[in-house]
Simulated assay, not measured.
Amino acid sequence: MSELTKAAVNGRSSHWQLQGIVSQLREARADWRTRNGRVSGEHGGRELPSRAAMAEILEALSGALFPMRLGPVDLREESEDFYVGHTLDVALNALLAQARLELRYVAHQRGEDVSGLDQKALELIQGFATALPGIRLLLDTDVLAAYHGDPAARSVDEVLLCYPGILAVIHHRLAHYLYRAGLPLLARISSELAHSATGIDIHPGAQIGASFFIDHGTGVVIGETAIIGERVRIYQAVTLGAKRFPADEDGQLQKGHARHPIVEDDVVIYAGATILGRITIGQGSTIGGNVWLTRSVPAGCNLTQANLLQAQSDDGCQQKGRE
């Protein structure tokens, strides 16, 4: 029995004048809904997707993707397929319910007809299910990149079980599919669950290639329109952010513009670097720690605070092999 239930059973809740508080909270909710033109959920039920439900779904999907490492402790290989099939059935049905909530919520907000949305949600989650084997193969490249990229890693199993960057990337790979499929709220919830757990903030819209490794990870921020190539490695406190936020004539921020960096293949970005705006970091470049960068750099660049200050070349970077 929970503490709240025990308190209610023992009558202690009478100390708090709950009837009046509940009434005032109801009035506050009603006022907010009226002022914001909100409509009640169907049959008075929940209107929005559930963060708690998505947390359970993502944990189940992670277990289905890596059953012998992220699945239940007593799982045996001979029952692996049964576990994966059962877990996916439960998780995908739960995800379908959340997808229906998001689609109906958006339709209500836009004043659109909700008929046909259940079928649309089913098709979206069927597509998601079909994509899971490919997502698993992509995640395998990320796990190997972490193992090969960190001399402290003793095994791929250690990487998968312990590294916060891998947890964040698992969530991102799943969330990115949902984002591109037209379920951005479910995608954002998925990303923010990983953000809360790891301190790594990856917007689900970011495009990230294979063999991606975030080492340590705390404080990493990757914006919505960032594009990251293959075999990219970044360290803690790196920001791939926007330089400015254009506003319309009414002063409202314009949304949807490409405003985050493009990071090409085989780039390494060390701790604390801040890279802002729609600039390009050329293939094979290395960006040193704590560099503040708002302009593109060519392929093969070795950019540090020192050579930025010394301006050893017109673009302030040393080409690899000529340092």
Rank of each mutant, 00 (worst) to 15 (best):
S2P: 03
L4K: 11
L4N: 11
L4T: 09
N10V: 12
S13F: 15
L18R: 14
G20Y: 06
G20P: 15
Q24V: 12
Q24N: 13
L25W: 13
R26D: 12
R26P: 14
R29W: 15
R33Y: 07
R33G: 11
T34F: 11
N36R: 15
R38V: 14
G44Y: 13
G44L: 09
R46S: 14
R46P: 14
M54D: 11
E56C: 13
E59Y: 10
G63R: 02
L65V: 07
R76H: 08
D81E: 15
L88Y: 13
V90M: 09
V90E: 11
V90K: 05
A91H: 06
L92K: 04
L92G: 07
A99V: 05
Y105N: 09
Q109S: 14
R110F: 15
R110N: 08
G111F: 08
G111K: 12
G116M: 12
L117M: 06
D118F: 07
G127R: 08
F128Y: 10
A131S: 15
P133C: 07
I135S: 05
I135W: 04
L138P: 10
L138W: 05
L139M: 08
L139T: 03
D142C: 01
H148A: 13
G149R: 07
A152E: 07
D157E: 15
L160F: 05
L160E: 06
G165E: 02
G165V: 01
A168T: 08
I170C: 11
H172K: 02
A181F: 07
G182P: 01
P184T: 08
I189M: 02
S190E: 11
H195K: 13
P204L: 10
P204T: 07
G205T: 08
G205R: 04
A206M: 06
Q207P: 15
A210V: 04
S211Y: 01
F212L: 01
G223V: 02
I227M: 05
I227D: 04
E230K: 00
R233Q: 01
I234K: 02
A237H: 12
T239K: 04
L240A: 01
A242R: 07
Q252V: 11
K255Y: 11
H257L: 13
H260T: 03
V267H: 01
I269R: 02
A271N: 06
A273Q: 04
I275T: 08
I275P: 03
L276I: 08
G277M: 07
G284N: 00
S285L: 01
G288H: 05
W292N: 10
L293S: 02
R295P: 02
R295C: 05
V297S: 00
A299W: 01
A299F: 00
C301Q: 08
Q305N: 14
Q310Y: 10
Q319C: 14
K320E: 03
R322S: 05
R322W: 10
E323R: 00
E323N: 06
